[in-house]
Design a protein around this nucleic acid. Structure first.
Lengths: 227, 227, 227, 227
DNA sequence: TATGAATGAGTCTTCATTCAT
DNA sequence: CATGAATGAAGACTCATTCAT
């Protein structure tokens, strides 16, 4: 059953660079189209064309549609999730955690630009075609660690008591994904260049840490928040 | 050609309750399915079944797929957008504007629960099937009014200088839509009841206005922000 | 059953000009479209639109598709056929008969420009949708009269013996219909104005009576042919 | 994408007789049905059934309806047209040209009996579905060569001056196609066997060259016409 | 590995026709 | 007379999937 074979190098051939491996090319084509049109609208024919292969090859490598989605999640999204949430520890201050998560998400997305819109469409969204698959890879303990960190800070009077600790992870992920996914749209609407990644990072972190609050009001106690 | 007729009550008939009007029923079925599965995955057959009519009726009332989408945007989303952005005035303080917008969005969504996930999937998202149609209804002047309000507050040192005035509208809309769309998911993950609308409203407004900032740091100048 | 009613004037109404009678308008729209696109490609919707009525009216007046075709043949084509073949008598010389037939066809078509292409497509052609209906109205005796006239002329050595008397009626009708139907095409190809009806009449009659033969060869015995 | 592949024999396979090639079978079924019912009335299902294949195969080989028609014209009609008009040279006498064209048309049609009625319905006729496609393959220079040949003969007094040189090509093609297409009809009407191809050829050529003219009037100058 | 041929199920859409009003 | 609503059947076309080579 060749569907299980990872893209092992054929022996006797001088291992071509991975980008040219057929399986990788298919996965790349698929994720690109998923981001652009959504999973439901992406057909095997289109994927194959983009990878300059035949639809039959897709079945050869992935057996069927379901298993293609499995592969996308397992081999592409899961590692990203791990890299983002791995370092999270409950004992750290929420501001620090948030800063780290945002930064690692932005870094990870940098090399996988198809993620944000796919995440919005197929994970966050009701009926998203990847939701179930991705949820299985969400490190619930880490997510809870963030909640607890915030709850504790609130109890100590060191964090905005209006925030719901259970929701903060969603606000966080959603805000990043949403902004990354809509940069393009932003440029379209205002007919100008999209904001740089730095600007975006500053905007998001700023929003999460201080909201509309002007800088001068927090200087005094900055340490309690910025550590 | 009935495709142009709005669902005006026929005279001489004892105006059945609107829920039983075929056109309304179809529109309702369509939006419901759009939210649940996305536009691309929603077929005429499914819509018709849900409305207990035949697929041919869909063509009778909407001529084709494109015009069904037109109707959804024109007759359902556009009014919502108007109700949300209509009262926005540049001279108001950003905090006040944001509070109003969030509140009106949540109120509007209350009676149109299909909106958030559709908005995320089909408007915010690259390649969203409603994006172009909806953008035409976005009141750019109002959006700019919000930007200017924030920019002015920043210039006066009364608002977080890290925020990008051009992005704040996206953060705002996106945050609300995203949270509304993921309540369901939230409950799924943590295996508990979804947070109430009030909790959500408090969380979102709190996040936007103060971020993580603890309450005590802002008491002194509360007026400058809360007016 | 109103489908049987011919367009009899309603009593008590000051007989509007026939062109505005709904049934006539439908018949006119139908024949126009039959000529332009063929019977098979012409739908009830199109006919109704052209007549500025609803498809349901077509069923009111003609009951169904078959009976619409019946009406076209019975009320429009049959009278034309009668007017063309009525005066044909076996005792006349073939040249005279042909001259008369061609002239009457051209005259009849003048006011029913939809006839030639419909005739070619739906009568002469195998599988034509009007063939059976029209054939019932072809005056076989008159057609045979023409054959006999030619056969006798051949026997007397007064007509081209290579012609098949049984085919001459087809050559005749076909040539006229074909040329009338292709005037438009002719203009398209050579990118110029279509030939006048007189030019066409002269060409067709000339071809049928003398073929390529130069004029001088027949002068001497012109009487035997032109009577 | 097999739609571009011509039906080249696959190597290594003992080249089955061409009749069993799927693409050929489909083309054959299509042309047969076009002749019998017209293009508009011929559905993919019918064609596929006749070729003992599925409708999906039609899309596999021809992509869509338009390209099926393209293929019919390009691969079947165009070669016929070339074979008929290829040898035409302006310096030859019109009688000679006509004799050649008629003969080559009849010979070509012999093996493609679907051509005449299709030609009448879909090429000569206004709104014919193949008209545009076929016109692109009409060798206008050759058609003009025939016109000029006739015009010159007329100028020398060697041809019927009543004929319109611009129309003669139409009379010629039309007469042949029309008669070939109506043989069947002829037999139906007179309830007898259809005339042989020789009889038909003699009739048409005779009509074109001499019309009704009796033989004796042309003996003297036969050479000028028959060369 | 790779692909061309083949197909059944399903999609949107159109159409003739019916019927209540 | 006239029409809007409704529908079943059928049309072109697409797609995931299979299979022999």
């Amino acid at each position: 059953m060749p569907a299980q074979l990872k893209s092992a190098r054929r022996p006797g051939r001088p291992a071509a660079s991975p980008e040219f491996d057929a399986r990788d090319r298919l996965l790349k084509a698929a994720t690109g189209l998923f981001a652009a049109q959504g999973v439901a609208a992406t057909t095997f024919v289109t994927i194959a064309q983009r990878a300059q292969l035949t639809p039959a090859m897709l079945h050869y490598y992935f057996r069927n549609r379901e298993q293609l989605l499995d592969a996308v999640v397992e081999e592409r999204l899961a590692p990203l999730i791990r890299s983002v949430w791995g370092p999270v520890e409950a004992r750290e201050a929420p501001a620090e955690l948030i800063r780290g998560i945002v930064q690692r998400m932005l870094a990870g997305i940098e090399r996988m630009s198809w993620v944000p819109s796919t995440w919005m469409r197929e994970v966050l969204n009701e009926g998203g075609l990847l939701r179930g698959r991705v949820l299985r890879h969400l490190p619930l303990d880490k997510v809870r660690a963030l909640s607890q960190s915030l709850a504790r800070a609130q109890a100590r009077g060191e964090a905005n008591p209006e925030l719901d600790p259970g929701l903060i992870a969603f606000s966080l992920i959603g805000l990043v994904m949403m902004h990354m996914a809509t940069i393009q749209l932003w440029a379209e609407i205002f007919d100008c260049k999209a904001p740089s990644r730095e600007a975006l990072s500053r905007h998001i972190t700023g929003l999460l840490l201080h909201g509309l609050e002007p800088a001068r009001h927090r200087k005094r106690n900055a340490t309690s928040i910025r550590k």
